[in-house]
Design a protein around this nucleic acid. Structure first.
Lengths: 349, 349
DNA sequence: ATGAAAGCGCTAACAG
DNA sequence: CTGTTAGCGCTTTCAT
């Protein structure tokens, strides 16, 4: 109950508290003999330095915070669906933190409305985290970035849309990934390829459409009216837009959806229309979510290195906290991977 | 950079720091006029109390920790699958924390091996969380519970296996849920119902089998040799055990799997064998994971109130921290829900 | 290589 | 109702 403090350890080892502090922090200038005595005393007492005291007295807090959009999270909660993307991010970062003796704090941010400024400022003042991992749409929020800069808090932007000197980021090339997937479809022989755009608030949505358009153009394939549909990343919107695509006078032989949920919606709409995937219409997704693997047919999709991204981000932040004020890390680009599964095939006939 | 402290606010409002402290903590004995002056000064300065200082000086840390099994998490990371269960837990708890001005810390615990004791002790000493949410298998780990009790840290066990006076828990009735699902199948006319048990490390696995067996027995249905198979909660094991079931001389007309991943594995194995779900064989799952909704056919399953459970747990813990040492909350049982979808139907002929 | 003293920013008793 | 005085358990100076 009455916790053991640095004084207890010092007393038992017969040294000053400063020496204990040095040993616990692996600072130099401690003779091996001293160090062993301290370590033994600490071990016997089961001593573990109090985080609050450390961060209050020192310059580090041993805490990395992850900023996550509140609205999205609440949506996921309502629908009782786990947020696949979010949980992957946490896995990567948590593991990295654990190894370094850091702790990961999940913070929900309300990005809409005027209170962002106050909310984030309060968070930074209260927590004083050593680093913040920004997930979309935080990665691109100017207010968040400004406050972080003002507070002098290190951060890494995960998969942001905009680049221009807004701070270090860890990301993948969405344009390229979408281009490659489109080219895979073209390579299969498809000429009319429908595209479903994701929720416009996300930078990735624009990037993926851009990649699709680039590939179509590069191969001289016309993108006729109605072939590009606006979705919102939900299964429902996938169903709706697939129906619209199927109703086209010259309906596509393949659909590329900006995420797996929408792609699965397409598969469902296609089946409902009495058609087969991929026999009649091929479908490609994006994300490699767990449902992509367990659906029938299993989805051809793009694997994003999400866990790796957050793992790298945490690593950067922790390294920077250690050396305090290291050089700003540059952008880090992680490779994606096309996952070829059963939902894409050559067009009929 | 140089953060604003309670002294700055006190000076600007022309009061003592104690008054500021009272206002920030909504303590009584402050005249409205004072209170307004303080609030205004705090607002103008953008003041937000430092968490570390608060928890060092006071008796609360404003932190709730979630204990999660490290091995499981690493598995999920490797397979690039988000942990649906884990992420739902976090959503519920995070939302609750946010509302109360608390912060949620995710901690990975290595439950295997001898270092659990030291790891958990160090965590509690360093963090001094106001409460800990225990997820399985932490909920049943005797060392973890002992350490928590010894440290006097409040905790709530989520969906634990054992009950006997081991501390407050929030859970659902797995036995009952499995019984009801089995009865749903029986009600449809099925008589030979295969069952796939989950990973034995989880208490829920035993409970679900028990419910299945109870329903079969209550309806006088024999559970013949080979009808109950041991799985491990993975899609693969679902495939394997479904194949074994299909190979039975008198094969079942329905399969009840202890989770959705295994159920989806069954659907896949059934399709591979050239049979239809539910036309030839009905399949029921457990969890209502996102893949259950997006599969074809959509899965009949049991919705667990996972997010609600962690939300309730966080609420209990926060309430207890506020009143410090409230009466121990009793067990809380949350209702499950049977989700009838397309994967179950009457047996053929 | 080691130690003494001075806070970090706050809450917890007490006084008034 | 309000203010004063001590610490909480550590890391920082700065001596030695």
């Amino acid at each position: 109950m009455a916790s053991v403090t640095i004084y207890d350890v010092a007393a038992r080892a017969g040294v000053s508290i400063k020496t204990v502090s040095r040993v616990m922090n692996k600072e130099p200038n401690v003779r091996p003999a001293m160090r062993d005595r301290v370590l033994q005393a600490a071990g016997e007492l089961g001593y573990s330095p109090n985080l609050s005291a450390r961060s209050l007295a020192g310059s580090r807090s041993f805490v990395i915070a992850v900023f996550v959009d509140a609205a999205l999270t609440i949506d996921h909660w309502r629908s009782e669906r786990g947020a696949d993307y979010l949980s992957r991010i946490q896995l990567g970062a948590t593991l990295e933190c654990r190894e370094a003796g850091y702790h990961l704090l999940i913070e929900l941010i309300d990005h809409e409305g005027p209170q962002v400024r106050q909310e984030v400022a309060a968070l930074l003042a209260a927590l004083k985290p050593d680093g913040v991992i920004l997930t979309p749409p935080s990665s691109d929020n100017p207010v968040v970035l400004e406050l972080l800069d003002k507070a002098g808090t290190a951060y890494v932007r995960l998969g942001p849309e905009r680049a221009e000197g807004l701070g270090p980021r860890v990301h993948m090339d969405d344009v390229d990934a979408a281009r490659e997937m489109t080219e895979h479809l073209i390579g299969l022989g498809h000429k009319r390829i429908g595209f479903i755009v994701g929720e416009p608030r996300y930078g990735a949505s624009q990037a993926r459409r851009e990649g699709y358009l680039a590939a179509m153009k590069a191969h001289g394939l016309p993108v006729s009216e109605g072939l590009v549909r606006q979705g919102d990343f939900t299964f429902q919107s996938g169903v709706a837009e697939a129906k619209a695509l199927l109703a086209l006078p010259d309906r596509p032989t393949a659909i590329f959806a900006s995420n797996d949920d929408m792609a699965l919606g397409c598969v469902s709409a296609i089946a409902e229309a009495g058609l087969m995937t991929p026999g009649d219409i091929s479908v490609a997704g994006f994300d490699d979510s767990s449902s992509a693997r367990f659906s029938r047919p299993q989805l051809t999709t793009v694997r994003q290195p999400v866990a790796e991204m957050s793992s790298v981000a945490a690593k950067l932040l922790i390294a920077r906290a250690k050396t305090s004020e290291a050089e700003r890390p540059e952008d880090i680009l992680l490779p994606f991977e096309l996952i070829h599964r059963a939902s894409t095939a050559p067009p009929p006939r």
